[in-house]
Simulated assay, not measured.
Amino acid sequence: MDFKKFLPWIILAIIIIGGYSWVKGINNTAVTLGQDVEQSWGDVQTSYQRRNDLIGNLVNTVKGAADFEKSTLTAVIEARAKATQTTIDPTNITPEQLAAFNSAQSGLSSSLSRLLITVEKYPDLKANQNFLKLQDELASTENQILTARTRFNEAVKPYNTHIKTFPNTLFAGIFGFKEKAYFNAVEGADKPVEVKF
């Protein structure tokens, strides 16, 4: 049998199989890293959901103080509603979507801070065990949110690196992989906080 006659076909088959395996590896790695990003985003949403649930309980506890400022409670309730309406598709996280989400969550954090500061005027409420427990859980949840956001950014980095490096970048567009956005600080977070007594 004359192998020289089949040698070009064997080489061509090896090149096709090798090329297919290489492109498949690029795609499958991007899919795996993309799933890690989506899981991390789910963890972020879970942390924010926990905070929203706690805020609902906190507001109900504060409502028990009959003379408590209604405008402060209304601001928290409205900010909570706005924050829960802002949703993001984890398969296509854009900087604009993340900025809108960040802005809504920042508004909620701000109104919640005003609520907690206002509570200082109400000794009965400050001594309420339910309120104190909710306040502790809220502080713990804020730490969970920070951790979830950090882990999300840690999951985004390898994904973005994978799809932006050459030659992967050539195939990323063909397979529909797009760069994902990172969580950044809320605008103005770099400025020192002004404290007034």
Score class of each variant (00 low, 15 high):
Leu12Trp: 04
Ala13Ile: 08
Ala13Gly: 15
Ile14Thr: 13
Ile15Gln: 12
Tyr20Glu: 08
Ser21Leu: 15
Val23Trp: 03
Lys24Met: 13
Asn28Pro: 11
Ala30Met: 04
Val31Leu: 12
Glu38Thr: 15
Ser40Pro: 02
Ser40Ile: 01
Thr46Lys: 14
Arg51Phe: 04
Asn52Val: 00
Asp53Glu: 13
Asp53Met: 08
Gly56Gln: 12
Val59Cys: 10
Gly64Cys: 07
Ala66Lys: 14
Ser71His: 09
Ile77Asp: 08
Ala81Gly: 07
Thr84Ala: 13
Thr84Trp: 00
Asp89Phe: 05
Pro90Cys: 10
Ile93Asn: 05
Leu98Pro: 07
Phe101Tyr: 12
Asn102Tyr: 05
Ser103Leu: 09
Ser103Ile: 00
Gln105Ile: 02
Ser106Trp: 03
Ser109Pro: 05
Leu115His: 05
Leu116Ala: 10
Thr118Ile: 03
Asp124Lys: 14
Asn128Thr: 13
Asn130Phe: 04
Glu137Pro: 14
Leu138Lys: 04
Glu142Tyr: 03
Leu146Arg: 09
Thr147Cys: 03
Arg151Met: 05
Arg151Pro: 00
Phe152Ser: 09
Glu154Phe: 00
Pro158Glu: 05
Lys164Gly: 11
Lys164Ala: 12
Thr165His: 14
Phe166Ile: 12
Thr169Tyr: 01
Thr169Arg: 10
Ile174Lys: 14
Ala185Val: 00
Gly188Tyr: 02
Gly188Asn: 07
Pro192Ile: 07
Val193His: 09
Glu194Asp: 11
